[in-house]
C-alpha cells in the first residue's frame, strides 16, 4: 500500500507541476477572497486584524475544497473503472492523493497566511507562536484533505459529484477550522491561551480522519 501511495503521490505532484491549476488558478482566487473579505469588513484596522485568523482559515478551507475537487477530477479522467482495471490499491490511492493534496494546500496556505498578515495589518508576534501556527496549519490542512479526499473517492466510486461533496465535507471540516483558527490567533497577535491543547486537537483530528480514510477507502471501491 505504501509503495503504491508513493507512486500515486509522485503522479499527482507531477500533474500539478505540468498543469499548474492550483498555482495559477486557485492561489490567485484565494488572494481575491482575502481582499473581498477586507472590503466586506471595512477599512478598520482593528476589526481586520481581529478577524484575520478566522478569515485566513475560511480561505484555506475554500482552497482545500477546490484542491480536493481538482484532485478527484484528475482521477475522474481514468474513472473508477480505470482504477479498478489497473488494480490500483484504493488505500494507496487514498493515502497518495491525500498527501499530495495536503502538501499543495499547505504551501498555498503559507502564502495566504503571510500575505494576510500584511494586508490585514495583524503582523506577527514571537517566533514560537509562528512555529506553532505553521505546525498547526499543517495538521489542519492534513485533516481537511484526509476528510475531503475520502468523500471525493466516495463520489468518484458512485458517480455522484460536485454538490454532495461540500455538503459532507463542511460539517466534518468545522472542528478543524475552529481549532486551526485558535492556533493561529497568537501568531497573528492575539492571546496565547491553551495553544498546546488546540495543537493536540488538530493532531487528533488529522490522525483520526487519515486512519478512518485509509481503512475505509478499501471497501469504497471494491464493489460497484
Amino acid at each position: 500500500m505504501l509503495k503504491s501511495s508513493w507512486i500515486v503521490f509522485k503522479k499527482d505532484v507531477k500533474i500539478e507541476m505540468k498543469s499548474r491549476v492550483l498555482a495559477f488558478q486557485v492561489l490567485p482566487l484565494a488572494g481575491a477572497v482575502l481582499i473581498i473579505f477586507g472590503f466586506a469588513l471595512g477599512p478598520d484596522n482593528q476589526v481586520l486584524s481581529r478577524a484575520a485568523p478566522g478569515l485566513v482559515w475560511i480561505t484555506i478551507l475554500l482552497v482545500s475544497l477546490l484542491a480536493v475537487t481538482r484532485s478527484i477530477a484528475i482521477e475522474d479522467e481514468i474513472g473508477a473503472d480505470g482504477i479498478r482495471l489497473f488494480g490500483i490499491d484504493p488505500g494507496g490511492l487514498y493515502l497518495g492523493k491525500t498527501m499530495a493534496a495536503t502538501i499543495q494546500v499547505f504551501l498555498i496556505g503559507v502564502v495566504i497566511i503571510f500575505s494576510s498578515a500584511a494586508i490585514f495589518n495583524s503582523g506577527f508576534s514571537d517566533i514560537l507562536s509562528i512555529l506553532a501556527m505553521v505546525l498547526g496549519g499543517f495538521l489542519a490542512v492534513g485533516a481537511l484533505c484526509s476528510a475531503g479526499i475520502l468523500f471525493g473517492m466516495m463520489s468518484l466510486a458512485s458517480n455522484v459529484r460536485e454538490t454532495l461533496l461540500p455538503l459532507l465535507f463542511l460539517p466534518v471540516a468545522a472542528p478543524v477550522v475552529l481549532a486551526a483558527t485558535k492556533v493561529s490567533v497568537p501568531a497573528l497577535g492575539g492571546s496565547k491561551a491553551s495553544i498546546l491543547e488546540w495543537l493536540g486537537v488538530l493532531a487528533v483530528l488529522f490522525i483520526a480522519y487519515l486512519s478512518v480514510g485509509t481503512v475505509v477507502s478499501e471497501s469504497l471501491l471494491e464493489e460497484n
Partner: peptide, 11 residues
C-alpha cells in the same frame, strides 16, 4: 449499504 455505513461512521 457500505457507502451509507461509512458515511454514518464518519459522522
Amino acid at each position: 449499504a457500505t457507502r451509507n455505513s461509512i458515511t454514518a461512521l464518519i459522522a
